[in-house]
Design a binder for these strands. Structure first.
Lengths: 203, 203
DNA sequence: TATTGTTTTGACCATCTGGTCAAGATCACG
DNA sequence: CGTGATCTTGACCAGATGGTCAAAACAATA
């Protein structure tokens, strides 16, 4: 039972290492597929030592997920109601794609959780996430009403951004298998997605 | 070790029940997250009885995946080189979305496998899937060259179809949490995706 | 250096899980 | 029926896994 801000230097270092390792292992194998031994080893600790910092496997997972939710929604939060509509939306797409490129493990951790029916997140999805989305949906609807962008369903517009950007992280293996070794999926995706959303949003 | 076409009536019935149950359990919990007891119970059998029909947990999973691969690619195979380009592509999108609606467990099973790095499918992806995609990519390129559709990267066009349609099956929980109870995600998605791809493909 | 609080670990435990096996129940067919 | 083949199951096993604990190692501070 350790309090929120780790007090000592050692605690800070080790909890950090554990979360780092857990992210790696959970994102590849899912919650049940990951073992404490694996995580401990990846963090350079023994299993009992890991359990000195977190009370249970579940606790590590929960900590990871709640930390994730924050950073995960940042790109959407940044969308500015007063900006140039098309620019704002394309910016969101670009930031989200960058997150897929730079934080693929986080993306897969999230995907794993949702795939299993979101047993540990349904609450957050139905409250926090929904509220944030509703907020942005209103903004987008306003833009459409003002004729700044095409009149399309804002919810599904957001879904399409999520689906298209996360696909490159979550299905990375498949994308690379199909494209072959010599291509850079993320570089190409950036161009492609800019084109796609430009066409979609044009009034 | 039982041969391909189950001989007796009972064998046919039970292998069927096992695969059905395994699909349900594997798609929700992933390979390691699923237990033989769970699958056996869902199939209405005892664990040793299940193992009478399949030599191991792995064998059930592999059987499921290889059966899946076939039906999974059918919609893409159906795309006709001699058809009207835009119609063919929109038809593919429609069929793929229907599969997400009608076979969400299959979609999640597949997603789970890819998320874990496709340990049991990398081979098939890099050979069969890649070959099929390359074939269709050539066709699409032809359509673009002939000015029948916009000049966009065919690989990423296909990825975008996969991402957008499978999202509604794999992230169903999230979609419903955000949309609320009273909406029909798949019905709305059909309209939205028709609009999206119509705009994208217009030369 | 002595003392106190923090960190680490080896040994251990209970439970779960994939899988085996021999014996019994059921079925198909002459 | 009767008999051989197919099907089913309870009991069991070995290894893995999440978690505990007491004692040892270490750090910090006086």
């Amino acid at each position: 039972m350790n309090i929120q801000p780790p007090r000592t230097r050692i605690q800070r270092k080790n909890t950090q290492a554990i979360l780092e390792a857990a992210l790696l292992v959970f994102s590849r194998h899912g919650f049940r597929g990951a073992t404490l031994d694996q995580i401990a080893a990846a963090a350079g600790l023994s299993k009992p030592n890991l359990l000195y910092y977190f009370p249970s496997k579940e606790a590590v997972h929960v900590t990871l997920l709640s930390q994730l939710m924050d950073t995960w929604l940042d790109p959407l939060r940044e969308m500015d109601p007063d900006g140039e509509p098309v620019e704002e939306l394309l910016g969101y797409v670009r930031r989200k794609l960058q997150m897929s490129r730079d934080f693929p493990r986080e993306s897969r951790l999230f995907a794993n959780e949702i795939l299993q029916g979101a047993p540990r997140m349904q609450e957050v999805l139905a409250t926090d996430l929904r509220k944030l989305v509703d907020e942005k949906v209103t903004i987008i609807r306003g833009w459409a009403a003002a004729g700044k962008i095409a009149d399309i369903d804002p919810h599904h517009l957001i879904f399409s951004i999520w689906a298209l950007t996360q696909h490159y992280a979550d299905f990375d293996v498949q994308v690379r298998a199909v494209l072959g070794e010599d291509r850079d999926p993320f570089a190409e995706a950036e161009t492609f997605l800019r084109t796609l959303f430009t066409k979609l949003l044009r009034p």
